[in-house]
Design a binder for these strands. Structure first.
Lengths: 235, 235
DNA sequence: CCTCCGCGATCTGTATACAGAGCGTTACAC
DNA sequence: GTGTAACGCTCTGTATACAGATCGCGGAGG
C-alpha cells in the first residue's frame, strides 16, 4: 500500500504537474508551439502519456490545440488577464458569501491561525514566489471555507493562469514597499468574516482583487519584458 | 480550405464531443468505470486518441481518473449538483453585471430578437431536450454579452455537467404545466437589462436559477430513477 | 460456512512505429 | 529582384504491441 501511495503520482500525473508549472511560468513562450518530441525527451517519457497530459492542460485553458499543428502555449494579453481577474472576483466573492452562511466559527478561527502563522514569513519574504504562495494560500483557504469544491477547482485553475502576471505585479509592489497593504486587507476580510458582516467582507475582498485587476495591463507589459529578457531587473 | 474546415473535427475532437455527450447524459453510470477497449471499438478509433479525449473530460470534471484503475464516470449527488448550481449563479450573475456595464444596446436588442424568435418553439416544445436547448441558448447568449470568454467557458462546463439533472427537472416542470414561468423570467431579465437596471436584472436572474437549485435534491432523485430505469415515465 | 490465498483473465499504461500533413527552403522563371 | 512552385524534412496523429497491474473466481484451509 505505501508503495502504491508513493507511486500514486504516475507518469501522466507527473508530466501534467511539470507541464502545468512550465505553462504557468511561461517557460513556453506565449503562442509558441510545444515540440512534443523535445519535451518528451526532456521529461523522460514517451509522447503518448505526454499528449494525455497536454490534453488536460488544453481543457484547463493553459494550452491551445490546433488540429494538424499540435499544441501551443496560450497567448498573453491584458484583456485575457483582465477577464481572468474578473472571473476570480466572481468566484471568490461568491465563495465568501457561501462561507458566511456555512462556515463554522472554528473553521474561520483556523484561517485566522493561518494568517497569524504566516504573517512573519509574509513580512520578511523577499522572494516574490514565496510571497505569492502565501497570498494564494490565504485565498485558497478562504475559498475552501465555502465548502464548494467547484469554487476551489475554478479558483485553482484561474490562479495558475494568472500566476505569472501576479508574480510580476507582486515583485513591483515589493519594490515600491507596499506589500504590507495586502496583508492588512487579508486581516480586514477575516475580521469582517468573524463578525459575520457579509457586506463588508465581500466589499473588502472585491476591492482587494479589483485593485490588482486594474494593474493588469501594466503587469502584462512587465511580464512580457520578464519572459523575453529574464534576469534583467524590471525597468 | 473548405476541406480543411470540413475535416477540422479531427479524431480526438470527434471522440471528445461524443464522449462529452455520453458523459453528460450519464450513458456511463455514475461512478462506473469506462471500458476503454469497448468504447474505442464502439466509436471506431484506437485507444490512443480515445484516452486523449478522456483526459480532457477529466480536466473538465466530467470524468474521474484513478491511477492504475482507469477512467470513471463522475458520481451524481444532490450536494454535487447544488455546488454546480451555486457556481452557476456566481458566474451568470457576474457575467450579467459585466454585460450591464459593457454590452451595447444593439447586442441587447439581438438577445431580445433571439427571445422573440424562439418564443413559439419554447411554448410548443414537448421534448425536454429541445426545451433545455432553448433555455441554455438564452443563458449562453446572456453570458456572452459580458464579453468575457472565461465566463462563457465556465458556464458551458457547468451546464454540461448539470444538463441531465436539468432535463429531468424540466420534464417534471412541463408535466406540471409551469414552463411558461421560465420564459417570462427570461423576458423580465432582458427588460431590466434594457433599462440598465442592474439590481433588478441580477436579482431576477439569481432568483430564477436558485429556484431550480433548490429543486436539485428532488431532481437528482428522479435522475437516478431515470438513469437506471429509462423509459418508465417518472413516478 | 467463512476466510484467505493463488491463479488466470482482463484491462490499463506506455513505448514504438509508421503514415501523412504541414512548413520552410531552395531553385527556377518572369 | 520578386514571386511561385516543388522538394524534403520535421513533426503530428494514430494504430498496435507488450509489459505490468488489478480484480474476480475457485479452491483449500480453518
Amino acid at each position: 500500500m505505501s508503495d502504491a501511495v508513493r507511486q500514486a503520482e504516475d507518469t501522466v500525473g507527473r508530466l501534467y504537474s511539470a507541464l502545468r508549472r512550465m505553462a504557468a511560468d511561461f517557460e513556453f513562450r506565449p503562442s509558441a508551439r510545444v515540440n512534443e518530441s523535445r519535451i518528451a525527451l526532456q521529461l523522460g517519457a514517451s509522447r503518448t502519456p505526454l499528449r494525455e497530459a497536454l490534453n488536460r492542460l488544453v481543457a484547463e485553458g493553459f494550452l491551445e490545440f490546433r488540429s494538424g499543428q499540435g499544441f501551443f502555449c496560450r497567448d498573453l494579453s491584458p484583456a485575457g488577464i483582465f477577464h481572468l481577474y474578473e472571473a476570480r472576483v466572481a468566484i471568490e466573492c461568491a465563495a465568501l458569501s457561501a462561507a458566511l452562511a456555512r462556515a463554522g466559527d472554528e473553521e474561520i478561527a483556523a484561517l485566522g491561525a493561518y494568517l497569524d502563522r504566516t504573517e512573519p514569513a509574509y513580512l520578511e519574504a523577499t522572494d516574490p514566489v514565496v510571497l505569492l504562495e502565501l497570498d494564494e494560500g490565504f485565498h485558497d483557504r478562504l475559498c475552501a471555507l465555502s465548502g464548494n469544491p467547484e469554487f476551489v477547482r475554478m479558483l485553482g485553475n484561474i490562479n495558475g493562469r494568472i500566476r505569472y502576471v501576479r508574480s510580476v505585479d507582486l515583485r513591483q509592489l515589493r519594490a515600491l514597499g507596499t506589500t504590507g497593504g495586502r496583508l492588512s486587507a487579508h486581516r480586514a476580510i477575516l475580521q469582517a468574516l468573524e463578525r459575520r458582516d457579509g457586506a463588508a467582507a465581500v466589499a473588502t475582498l472585491r476591492a482587494h482583487i479589483e485593485k490588482r485587476r486594474d494593474e493588469a495591463t501594466e503587469a502584462v507589459r512587465r511580464a512580457y519584458a520578464d519572459i523575453y529578457a529574464p534576469g534583467e531587473e524590471g525597468q
